[in-house]
């Protein structure tokens, strides 16, 4: 009774890129900027693969919502070990205003269509930093949610999950089907090797549109402006511990 897993992968600006706000304030510069799989989603893919290696899972389906370039992200997931991919194609203006609620509806629709037992997602994307999608997918499906997982153990149609919370960690048990979101320390993602990258090119990738899934993706929010954050005046130096202490004393800090 091995389970089927849907894993969400988002294409995001690479974590090492210094993000620049566009001069017209309509967004951030994305052209010519390196994009990669959202790091938390890499952890989700890795966890899915480990569950398959342990024979807990029988099939891993990767899904991504966005423009054609998302197929690269999906190919990466396939090279790592996903069995097949679903690309929900969204372009142009629709993509610019695509919000987590709409993405959650798309993922929930795919989860239902594919009758998966588990949706594995990163806890947040490092672009919009929303930390919402897993929770909303779970809500839409009326499934339980185990968020910010640092350890996952699946048996007897239940997942026991250790999750990171303020001030420590806790363990909960959720019935499958369920949504699990990954935190940083769940695992260390592997890299894809060349033979598996080659093999991934032959793995199936289905393409569909939001209307195929019966989902309305209209935005609920308008993004009015993007600004540079206020610059912090730094760069001050002290030359000794004594000087540091006297400066801190002046400010009444110590």
């Amino acid at each position: 009774m091995a389970i089927r897993i849907l894993v969400g992968v988002k294409r995001a600006i690479d974590y090492a890129v210094k993000v620049q706000v566009k001069t017209d304030k309509t967004g951030v510069v994305t052209e010519g900027v390196k994009h990669s799989m959202n790091p938390f989603d890499e952890i989700a893919v890795e966890e899915a693969i480990r569950l398959k290696e342990k024979k807990v899972a029988q099939e891993i389906i990767a899904v991504s919502c966005g423009p054609t370039q998302c197929q690269e992200t999906l190919r990466t997931a396939l090279a790592l070990g996903a069995d097949r991919a679903i690309h929900v194609e969204i372009n142009g203006k629709d993509y610019e205003t695509l919000q987590p609620l709409a993405i959650s509806k798309l993922i929930a629709a795919v989860a239902k269509k594919e009758s998966v037992d588990l949706v594995l997602l990163g806890k947040q994307a490092i672009d919009d930093d929303c930390n919402q999608t897993g929770q909303m997918v779970a809500g839409l499906l009326s499934w339980p949610q185990a968020l910010f997982a640092s350890k996952v153990d699946i048996k007897d149609k239940k997942a026991e999950v250790m999750r990171e919370i303020d001030g420590g960690s806790e363990t909960i048990r959720v019935k499958l089907p369920a949504v699990i979101t990954t935190d940083l320390r769940l695992n260390q993602p592997r890299f894809a090797n060349l033979p598996s990258i080659q093999k991934a090119k032959k793995k199936p990738m289905a393409k569909m549109s939001p209307s195929d899934l019966g989902v309305d993706i209209k935005p609920h929010q308008e993004y009015l402006s993007y600004e540079e954050p206020p610059k912090r005046q730094g760069g001050g130096r002290v030359s000794s511990v004594d000087e540091l202490i006297s400066k801190l004393k002046e400010k009444g800090l110590v």
């Binding site: 620049q20 009015l224 993007y226 600004e227």
Partner: peptide
Amino acid sequence: VYAGNAVLKL
């Protein structure tokens, strides 16, 4: 958003 590299008004 973007780890504090942009301030979004919505």
